[in-house]
Design a protein around this nucleic acid. Structure first.
Lengths: 252, 252
DNA sequence: ATTAAATTTCAACATTTGTTGAAATCGCAC
DNA sequence: GTGCGATTTCAACAAATGTTGAAATTTAAT
């Protein structure tokens, strides 16, 4: 006889499969207190599922952690890549504006975190922690995001052809740092600003980050062009602060 | 009867007190795998000290964590504040350059992480994690750093008098994100750049970050000034990407 | 040398940790 | 229904968790 549909539906019901429920619960809890801050039992209880199923479905706690990380990455990255290529295509025969490149990098993330539901929100909070973790960062971020990042950096280089590659890498690093801290949504900016800004207001971030970062990139390239004379490690100078000469403006 | 000298050291020696050794070991290990990733026993074994001493000297594991966090913060912040005031004084009767303000914020940190010894390095890696943790960030960062941050933001506002305060708060948030990810030293930029950039090369960061951030701040203020007409949440726009008009340069 | 306080040691505590096998149950093609 | 593989349950494992109280030791002032 014909089986009924499947999925969550009413009646015979067949609720979401255990594997998915575990991933969902793990996502939430890992985002809250990190890998070691949650026990397998807490996860399975939150998922309404037996403890042993973690080993059965994933092999172990670490593999579950990686699975959580991978699940949404593989949804996200193709979309980001497509957006990047679209931006690139539209700018032909020239290179796209820096703002547009950065935007293709950040927009799919900000959009899902803002309006994709609580699962996405947890996921990005988790990324914020992993990205800043010496233990997990080099493993998970590298494995699941670096191929995409390399493509982005290539396009950035096209858009800044006379710029030393190192400036681009550092500029990208500053970008990720700013972006991931935003995802952490610790509420610190709320307190600092007395409620004027809200961590959860990712539209505000979307309106600002690309401008901020693009200007930063340009400043780095400019600096490299004009200051190439002095190697500029600085760090000795007890008295004068470093700056370049670009900044006197406000003091005049 | 007379006991022999002490223990390890030769002569009167008086090796570092247990409390300090615990803090040192905890700093290293917490930085590596976070609060839950290390047991009290691992810490005390690394410190060469009995387990019970953590409870005796600090009260418990959580209090130890906070103590680690506080120890160097109280060394750091007065110095940063002094540098900020010095920068401010030198610029009178005008306001300091943005680069100099940012530099007063970051230089004491970068300098210690680069040349202050392994303890400082661990400390900043720990900060990177705490700053991006929804669990600890709002507690520890706020308590130990926000008074200082408020002063910095006040000076930033002096330097950008016509700029909406919100731009400054967001600009600051992007700055901390970029800075703390740098402290994490995950080695990701090393792989990405094929060895061209090194996470540990904080002099490179020092030479770049202030320029990047200062340019970012200016771009935010400029955006607020010119785009105030459209509320600019965007997020719809399928075609045109955001950019301003500044970015065409490379495409020409 | 005597004393009292501060520090360190030791052993044990009740929980909780991740993982595992064997049994039970389910889904579904025959 | 029968049978079979996939999934779930249950109970238990050894190891590790943070904390504590009592005893031993060290430290420093008298």
């Amino acid at each position: 006889m014909r089986m009924m549909r499947r999925k969550t539906g009413q009646r015979g019901a067949a609720r979401t499969p255990a594997k998915t429920r575990i991933l969902d619960a793990a996502e939430t809890l890992f985002a809250r207190t990190g890998f070691y801050g949650v026990s397998v039992r807490e996860i399975t209880e939150a998922a309404g599922v037996d403890v042993a199923l973690v080993s059965y479905h994933f092999g172990g706690k670490r593999e579950l952690f990686a699975a959580v990380f991978q699940r949404r990455a593989q949804l996200l990255n193709p979309e980001r890549l497509a957006m990047l290529e679209q931006v690139r295509r539209q700018a032909l025969p020239g290179a796209p504006a820096l703002e547009d490149i950065v935007n293709a990098f950040t927009y799919p993330l900000l959009e899902r975190s803002a309006r994709g539901g609580p699962g996405w929100k947890s996921y990005f909070a988790l990324i914020a922690q992993v990205n800043n973790s010496p233990e997990w960062g080099p493993i998970l971020m590298t494995e699941y995001f670096d191929p995409l990042v390399e493509r982005f950096i290539a396009v950035l280089r096209e858009a800044l052809p006379e710029c030393d590659a190192r400036e681009i890498y550092w500029g990208y690093q500053f970008l990720t740092g700013a972006l991931t801290l935003t995802f952490a949504e610790t509420g610190r900016i709320d307190k600092l600003s007395g409620g004027l800004c809200r961590s959860t207001d990712l539209d505000s971030v979307h309106a600002r980050l690309a401008h901020y970062v693009a200007a930063g990139f340009r400043a780095l390239c400019e600096r490299a062009r004009t200051e190439s004379g002095r190697p500029a490690p600085a760090a000795r100078r007890t008295r004068r602060a470093t700056s370049g000469r670009t900044g006197q403006r406000a003091a005049r």
